[in-house]
């Protein structure tokens, strides 16, 4: 487990500092690693990287989706090839997921999500520890 983890970490920390010139390419590659390996977390890495590259936050959020969408399709195809894509199990989450996304974008306009962010990050750490201990 050390090897892939190191690759991700190096991707984020090490390369970011070094190749300012190829910043967009590096952002894309890092997002691709998270997207392919973990099936998630692409946006989480893309947004701060795009912001660091000088993009304003709103645009960074929007652009991160433009990047992660095609990457998810590609990763999905390889998951399918590996026999690990259960389309039917995903479908049941989609309708209310869309509703949630609509509500979320209203939230984003109306309220500061500082507290939400704190609570959510604490939950993520707890969940991470729990999965790790499993």
């Amino acid at each position: 487990m050390v090897l892939p983890l190191c690759l991700v970490l190096y991707g984020v920390i090490f390369l970011r500092g070094f190749f300012k010139k190829h910043f967009t390419a590096i952002t894309g590659m890092t997002v691709g690693i998270c997207n392919g390996l973990f099936g998630s977390g692409g946006g989480m890495t893309a947004v701060p990287m795009l912001e660091k590259g000088g993009m304003e936050p709103k645009k960074a959020h929007a652009t991160s989706i433009a990047i992660t969408l095609p990457l998810s399709v590609i990763s999905g195809m390889f998951y399918f090839g590996g026999g690990n894509l259960r389309l039917i199990e995903a479908i049941k989450f989609i309708p209310l997921g869309l509703a949630g996304a609509a509500v979320g974008s209203i939230f984003m306009k109306k309220l500061s999500n500082k507290l939400l962010k704190r609570v959510f990050s604490a939950l993520m750490i707890i969940a991470g520890i729990r999965i790790f201990m499993k």
């Binding site: 392919g36 990047i67 990763s75 390889f78």
Partner: peptide
Amino acid sequence: AIIWGAASAALFSILAN
């Protein structure tokens, strides 16, 4: 970013599988 990301996404999803 998409072009570069596509390559690493492909590679790492094979790895994940």
